[in-house]
């Protein structure tokens, strides 16, 4: 069972939910996959012991100038302007390359081979009984979707997988949420939260991923998010109250449910319900 945790707006509580839910589910077999590769933070809370670090690269072209006839076809076929034939030499711009392979396929003299350009790493380890994997994109790189796809190759079929997705609604988020059984959208009861929730709902419904909503910091804003969810027939899975002490525990990098029993009970309720709920929506 693969559950993605996403949100349109950043800072609504995805990481909080992913890490605290993982702690609750620890005894039943759970893994966390941090796919927020631009800002991976799950390790700060789960403090896993990292046992393996894997380099992730994208295949970028390497041109053999002895074979190249400078026909310019590679430049023409590349929509990302990542390879340019300037006549005497073929220039490659690794940061612009998406690794699609078009230049290699089109080259009539097979002058192009592919080499790995490292865009980030995957760290794997354990935090207690929680299986942990996190993607970390290198600075200056843009290939977040590729790294996310690589992190998702570490999904274990025999446990519950919690995917912490990046914020937003564009390609990195779509890649993280795609092919998951259920998507939990985390939001807050403010006009920002509502606006960005609507965009996220549009995204998941286009993707056909069943979804439910967690409203965080309830009490700080208005009830328009709840009204919207009711009107759209979106299930409100959980309402987490706004409390300063939650923010303070989180700010220290600690696990909130370990210090606040009532929040543990709230999240336990969600953890108990999720498997049945997901089975139900998947059957439909």
């Amino acid at each position: 069972m693969i559950i993605s945790i996403a949100s349109g707006k950043g800072g609504t509580g995805k990481t909080f939910l992913a890490t605290n839910l993982a702690k609750i589910m620890e005894s039943q077999g759970v893994q966390v996959l941090d796919c927020d590769v631009e800002e991976p933070d799950d390790h700060l809370f789960l403090k896993p012991r990292i046992k393996e670090t894997i380099n992730v690269g994208i295949p970028i072209p390497d041109v053999d100038e002895d074979i190249c006839i400078h026909c310019g076809k590679c430049s023409q076929v590349c929509v990302y302007h990542a390879i340019t034939d300037v006549g005497a030499k073929v220039l490659v711009f690794p940061q612009m390359c998406h690794g699609c392979g078009a230049c290699k396929i089109v080259c009539p003299v097979d002058a192009i081979t592919e080499i790995d350009h490292i865009v980030g790493i995957i760290e794997k380890g354990r935090s207690g009984d929680i299986n942990f994997s996190a993607g970390k994109m290198n600075i200056k790189e843009v290939a977040a979707p590729h790294l996310i796809r690589k992190v998702k190759e570490h999904i274990k079929p025999d446990v519950i997988s919690l995917i912490d997705a990046p914020p937003g609604t564009t390609c990195p988020t779509v890649t993280a949420v795609s092919n998951t059984d259920y998507c939990i959208l985390v939001t807050e009861p403010t006009p920002f939260g509502l606006n960005d929730l609507k965009l996220a709902v549009e995204m998941v419904s286009q993707m056909g991923v069943p979804t439910g909503v967690v409203i965080n910091r309830v009490g700080i804003g208005d009830n328009k998010v709840e009204t919207y969810c009711r009107e759209e027939g979106l299930e409100i899975l959980l309402k987490i109250p706004h409390r300063r002490e939650i923010a303070e525990i989180y700010a220290r990098g600690e696990i909130v449910i370990e210090e606040l029993p009532d929040i543990r009970n709230l999240l336990q309720g969600l953890a108990d319900r999720l498997p049945g709920l997901i089975e139900e929506v998947t059957r439909v």
């Binding site: 699609c100 392979g101 779509v174 795609s178």
Partner: peptide, 24 residues
């Protein structure tokens, strides 16, 4: 390379990165 085309040749435009390899 973006897993955007299913075995029955349906293109998932959300996953498509627009590289045009399939077109070319």
């Amino acid at each position: 390379r973006f897993d955007a085309i299913s075995p029955d040749i349906k293109i998932d435009t959300l996953l498509c990165e627009g590289c045009q390899v399939c077109y070319n």
